[in-house]
Computed example of a mutant assay.
Amino acid sequence: MRRSTDALSVLSTDDLADYDVISDGPRSMESSIADLGQTPKYAGGEPAPLPSAKEKFDTVGLTAEDIQAYVQRSLGAPPDARTWRVYVDGVFGPLTPRDVLQLRQAKLSFPSVQLVVGVFSDDICAEHGVPSGVPHADRCEVVRHCRWVDEVVPDAPWTLHERFLRARHVDYVAIDEGTSIDPDVDRERLKGYDLVKSLRKAIPTRRTNMSTPMPKSFDPFKKEKEAKVVEQEPPSGRSTVKGVPTELAQESEADAGRRADILEALETPFEEPPEPAPFEEPKIDEFGTGVGV
C-alpha cells in the first residue's frame, strides 16, 4: 500500500498516517476496505417494507414481476428490450405514500425505465384551484430525492399535449387506474389522458388504497369548496339543526318569543283587581251642572 507524502502525512501521528493511506486516491477507500475483507455491498436493492406498511398500503407488496406482467397485459404485447421513458406528473405537495407507490410502479413497469416526473408550478395550481401546500422549489427538490425518479420537469403542463410528449421523448405516461373516471379530476387533465390513450402511450398503475383515509388537503385534484354552510346560532337553552333554512329559523325564533311570554305570565303571581270606590251621588252646583262633569 502506498503512503501519502503530503505535508499532512509527514507531520501526522501514526493514526493519522493510516487514515491518509485509506483516503489517498479516488478509489483508495474501497480498495482499503476490500483489503480488510469488508467489501461494500451493492446498494441498488430495495429495502423491505415494514409489516405495518403491508397491512396499510395494498400496493406496497407488488413485485417488479407483478408490475411488469400487469403492464404487458394492458399493452397486449411484450415490450422491446430497451430503456423506456415513462412520465408521471402531479402536485406532490406534500409527497405522500400514494405518490411514491405510484412512482415505484412507473419505475418498475419495464425492466429498464427512465422515470420522468413533472411537477406543477404554484401558478398552475392556483389557476386550477388546487392547493399545493408546499412551495414549488421545495416540491421539486423532494421529488428529485425520491429513489425512483431519474428526471424532474419543473414546468409540467396541466394538460398533456403531443408537442410536450415529443419534446421530452416520452414513450409512456403512467396513469393511476380510476383517474379518468374520477369526478374530482379537472376536465382539462382528462382531455390530456384521453389524448395519451388515443396515442397508445398510456400504461396503468394500480391505485393505492389505504386502510386510513388520506386527508382531503393532500388530494392533489380535490378542489376546495367555496360555499360554506353558515351555522345559525341557537337560542339560549335550545339547539337547532345545522343548516336550517332561514324561513324556518325565523319561525322558530317567533315561537320561542311567544313561549317566553307565556312562561313569564305563568311565573308572575295573579293579582286581584282593585275594588271599585263606593258610588257617590254627583254634586250639583247652583246652576244645576254636575261638579267636575
Rank of each mutant, 00 (worst) to 15 (best):
A64R: 14
G118Q: 01
L8C: 06
M210Q: 09
R163C: 05
R207D: 01
I284G: 00
R73G: 10
P131C: 02
Y19V: 04
V293E: 08
L195I: 01
D186E: 14
S121Y: 02
V71C: 02
A156Y: 05
T96W: 06
D184S: 14
P235R: 14
V196T: 03
P273A: 05
E253L: 10
E127S: 12
L165A: 02
G37H: 12
E55G: 06
G178A: 03
P97M: 08
P220T: 00
L8M: 06
F120E: 12
V10M: 07
V291Y: 13
G178Q: 06
T83H: 08
P274C: 04
P282S: 12
R104G: 08
P204G: 09
E231T: 06
D182T: 05
P94M: 11
G45R: 11
A156W: 04
T39A: 13
T13A: 06
E286P: 00
Q68L: 03
R3M: 09
R147L: 11
L62F: 15
V91I: 13
L11P: 00
K54G: 08
E280R: 01
L263F: 07
G237Q: 02
F57R: 06
A43W: 07
P234D: 08
K216V: 04
V142T: 13
Y172D: 09
G76D: 08
A227F: 14
G44M: 05
A137T: 09
E55W: 04
Q68V: 01
G93V: 01
A64D: 15
A265D: 10
V185T: 10
R98F: 03
V293G: 01
D176L: 08
T83E: 15
P269R: 10
Q102P: 01
Y193C: 05
G90F: 00
S32D: 12
A265W: 07
T159A: 13
R258K: 10
G192N: 03
Q72F: 11
S31N: 10
V86R: 09
G45C: 08
A53R: 09
D138Y: 06
E55A: 15
E251Y: 12
I175V: 09
